[in-house]
Design a protein around this nucleic acid. Structure first.
Lengths: 239, 239
DNA sequence: CAGTTCACGATTGTTAACAATCTTTGTCAA
DNA sequence: TTGACAAAGATTGTTAACAATCGTGAACTG
C-alpha cells in the first residue's frame, strides 16, 4: 500500500472519460448509492439524452460502463435497467466483504501511519452532520461510502475498486431487502472502528468490523419487494 | 459462497454482450494473459475491424470494456494501448493479492466440500500437460488462471471478478518486469496448495500461498523494459 | 545544419439517418 | 368478456458519412 488516491469518482478511477460521460455515470452511481434509483428502474436512452443534454452516443457509452460494473443491466433490444440482485447475489456480496474487509482493517490497525486517516476522520464528521440534519439520502450514501473510503485510505487502487463495487451492490441489496429503518449503518459503529484503527488495536478493529457487517446483513429479510420509479429527470437532475 | 459459476469468460461474467464484442474482448484478454500482447502495444480501431471482420462500433465497445477493466488504456484522440503498469501499481497489485488470497485459501481449506475441487484438479492436469509439451504461451496463461480458478471454485462471482482483474494485471507486470525464466509459476506449487486445501489444512494452504506469491514477486526487478509489437492479426487471429 | 512551421494523411470522435426489434394498442372473433 | 392477432408507435441496434484531432514529413528560415 503506497501512493494516495487522488480521485474518488467512479468514472475516473480507471479511465479517462469525456466529461459528458463521467457526469452521467457519476449521477446514476450516486442516485443508486442513495437508493433514489430503485432496482429494475428502466433507464431509457432518450430520457437520459434529454436529462443530460447530450447525444445518444455518450449515453450509450455511459450505460455500457455502468453495466460493466454491475450497477445496471443491459437487456438486448430492451434497454437498461438498474440492477436487481437476488438473494444468492446478496449472500455472495456479504461473503466477499467478509473475506476482504476484516483483513483490511486489521492491516490498517497494524500500521495506521501508512494510511490517510484524515480522509476517514473528515468523513465521519460528514456522516454525523448529515445525520443531525436528517438528510436521509445523504446519510445512506455516506454510510456506504465510509467503507469505500476505508479502502481508499490505503492508497491501493485495486482494493479501492473492489470495495467500491461491493459497497455499491450492498446499497442495492439493502434498498431491496432491508427494513425501512436500518437503511444506513448504525450511528457510531463507524467511529468505533476508526478509533480502534487509530489506537493500533487490530483485533478490536477486526471484531468491530465483523459485527458491523453481521449487523447490516441480519437486518435483511430476503423477501423481495420492488418499486421501480419513474421521474428520472427529478431524480438525476439535482446537484 | 454458494452457487457455482458456470461461465468463466471475462465478457459474460457480468454482462450480456453481442457475440461480436465478446469475441474481441476474449481474444485480446487471452493474448494479454499469454503475454503475446506487450504493454503499450497500440490497438488501432481499423486494424481490429479488419482482424475481426466487424464494424467500428463493436470494436469501440469492446475497447471501452477492456479499458474499464484496466486491460487497455484509452487516450483521447490517440487510440487504445495495452496497459503498462508501473512499479507502484505492481506493488499495489501484490499488496491486494496478499490481502485477498491468503484468507481465501484458508477459508477454502476449512470447508473444501463447499467448493468445486474438480475445477482445480482438472486445471492442474492441464498445466502439467502444457508444461510437458513445452507450450510456452499456454503455460503462462494457465499459470495465471490457476489463481483465477481458485476464486472461481468458491462460486462467488465477486471474488472471482476481483481475482481475475488482479491476475490479469499480474500477467502484464510479470511480462514487463519478470526475468525471462519465471514468466510462469514454479512447477508444482499450485499442486501443493490444492493438496493442502484437500487435506483440510488451512495453515499450510495459507503458508504455501503466501510463499508462492512472494516467490513470484521476488522474481521481478522493477527495471522497466518495453517491447511493443505490431503484427496484431497474427497475434489475435489464432484459435 | 538545426529548428520551426505548415500542410497533408491517418486516426479517432460525433452525428444523424436507417434498420431491426420490442411494446402497446386496437380490432376481431370465439 | 376474453383471447389472439395485427398494425402502429416507440425504443434500441447499426451503419456510414462527416468533423475534429493528432502525427508525420516536407519545406522554409535562421
Amino acid at each position: 500500500m503506497s501512493s494516495k488516491l487522488q480521485e474518488s469518482t467512479i468514472a475516473s478511477s480507471n479511465l479517462k472519460l469525456r466529461s459528458d460521460e463521467s457526469i452521467i455515470v457519476e449521477r446514476i452511481y450516486k442516485a443508486v448509492m442513495e437508493q433514489r434509483l430503485a432496482p429494475k428502474t428502466k433507464l431509457s436512452e432518450a430520457r437520459l439524452c434529454e436529462t443530460f443534454g447530450v447525444g445518444r452516443m455518450h449515453v450509450r457509452r455511459a450505460l455500457l460502463l455502468l453495466a460493466s460494473q454491475g450497477i445496471i443491466e443491459l437487456q438486448s433490444n430492451r434497454g437498461a435497467y438498474v440492477a436487481c440482485p437476488d438473494g444468492s447475489e446478496a449472500n455472495d456480496v456479504f461473503a466477499a466483504r467478509m473475506l476482504i474487509e476484516p483483513p483490511l482493517v486489521r492491516q490498517m490497525a497494524q500500521s495506521p501511519d501508512d494510511i490517510d486517516l484524515t480522509l476517514l476522520t473528515d468523513h465521519i464528521a460528514l456522516e454525523d452532520a448529515a445525520r443531525k440534519m436528517n438528510e436521509r439520502t445523504e446519510v445512506i450514501r455516506l454510510s456506504g461510502e465510509f467503507h469505500t473510503k476505508l479502502a481508499q485510505s490505503t492508497g491501493n487502487k485495486f482494493v479501492f475498486r473492489m470495495m467500491r463495487e461491493l459497497v455499491t451492490r450492498t446499497s442495492l441489496i439493502v434498498g431491496l431487502f432491508g427494513s425501512s429503518e436500518n437503511a444506513s449503518c448504525p450511528d457510531d459503529e463507524h467511529g468505533n472502528i476508526l478509533e480502534a484503527i487509530r489506537l493500533r488495536n487490530p483485533e478490536l478493529a477486526e471484531k468491530l468490523l465483523i459485527s458491523h457487517l453481521n449487523h447490516i446483513q441480519s437486518g435483511l429479510d430476503m423477501t423481495s419487494r420492488q418499486a421501480p420509479q419513474d421521474d428520472l429527470a427529478a431524480i438525476l437532475g439535482s446537484e
